[in-house]
Amino acid sequence: MKPRELVRIQPRPARGTGASAPGAGRSAIGRARYEEGMDFGAVLRATQGRREDLPPAPDFREPPADLAERARRALYEVADPEFPISLVDLGLVYDVQADPASGAVTVDLSFTATACPCMDFIQWDVRDRLLREPGVERVEVRTVWDPPWTTSRISERGRDVLRRAGVSI
């Protein structure tokens, strides 16, 4: 399957935020400096964290009950960019919902910190993986902060992984 293009940086079109948008249209500072066609997203994609040291997904005895469960299990293959731990084991996946008829999947995802520098990368990886799952046509990733993520959400499996990586929790 041809990889999806994630980000292509190019001059921004004027945004229609409505006449009531304060400050809208007053300034075009720097817009001329965008380099047309520069595919910075592709560069980042090529270097993304498909980690060879990510442990395989758990050996589930039962097949997934539905598309949502299949999607959730697929996220065991998406790694945190900094450590060899899946987003599921890290406890960042709060909910996965799916509509088998339309192929729409919605993932509620939190992050360890509000200033997580990898938020974009992680969301791209989630979309990228789920769109490779048969029957998934659309993916929406929703960021949630409630309840706040804490280390208590890390699975036992994840704790073992982190300990082996030298992280004390």
């Binding site: 921004r12 945004r15 935020t17 409505g18 009531s20 948008a21 304060p22 400050g23 809208a24 300034s27 075009a28 500072i29 720097g30 910190a113 509000t114 200033a115 997580c116 902060w145």
Partner: peptide, 24 residues
Amino acid sequence: GHGRIVYAMLRDFGYDPHHLEHER
């Protein structure tokens, strides 16, 4: 991080977060 969250919320109030963050 906190600023990023709050700027993003302002889209629903008729603001353009990109303009707020980078163009004022």
